[in-house]
């Protein structure tokens, strides 16, 4: 019997949690429980990132996705969690249509994923088992500043091609983020119609009475 491959074990564990939680998001009706399932799905995906050697992306996933975006979503859930919206039923026809679309998509994706034999196992002779050997943070940071340190071992021509780095996308995304945040703040800040009128009414009553 072959020795147990611990990397595979942890992969299977994380993958099982991710898939089960994703199905839980689909299956559960209660929006709060959906958020909990999503929390587990995203956390497990972060674990898969770690296993795939992307520890910086994994940490980012935990920090921004799980710690930021999901808190935001939970916030939204709680703000709108009134009885009728807590769990909303979907019509059977919609379920059938949705499952059909999803099923077809899954079939296509699985077909293409399983079609290449080379992808079934690791090709590289040196699997990177030790997480401490991974150093993705610095190359990523350098890449965002325009220096592709991950391409240093490539031939000159290929290197020059990729050496421009990600400075421009980084800048674009920064500006984009800023715009988006300002827009979100503006949207959420807008006063609610009716409320001002309501307040005025109340104040009149108080002043009169």
């Amino acid at each position: 019997m072959n020795p147990i491959n611990w990397h595979s074990c942890f992969f299977l564990l994380a993958a099982a949690v991710a898939c089960a939680a994703a199905l839980g998001v689909v299956a559960s009706k209660n929006v709060v429980r959906m958020a909990v399932f999503l929390l587990h799905a995203l956390g497990a995906v972060a674990g898969l990132f770690f296993l795939a050697g992307a520890d910086f992306v994994g940490a980012m996933q935990l920090m921004i996705y799980v710690g930021g975006t999901l808190v935001l979503i939970a916030f939204g859930v709680m703000l709108t969690a009134r009885r009728p919206f807590l769990s909303m039923d979907t019509k059977l026809a919609q379920w059938i249509a949705g499952t059909l679309v999803g099923g077809c998509l899954l079939a296509v994706l699985l077909r293409s994923a399983l079609s290449v034999d080379d992808w079934a196992g690791p090709v590289s002779a040196a699997p990177r088992a030790q997480a401490e050997d991974l150093a993705t943070a610095a190359p990523l940071g350098m890449g965002m500043l325009g220096v592709r340190v991950d391409r240093l071992d490539e031939p000159e021509a290929a290197r020059r091609e990729g050496m421009s780095g990600y400075l421009l996308p980084f800048e674009i995304i920064s500006v984009h983020l800023l715009v988006v945040l300002i827009g979100a703040a503006y949207l959420a800040r807008s006063t609610r119609p009716g409320e001002a009128r309501l307040r005025e009414n109340v104040e009149d009553k108080i002043n009169a009475g």
């Binding site: 520890d55 940490a59 150093a135």
Partner: peptide, 9 residues
């Protein structure tokens, strides 16, 4: 676990 991005983690 020695993580490269430990502070972040």
């Amino acid at each position: 676990q020695r993580l490269d991005a430990a502070a972040f983690f």
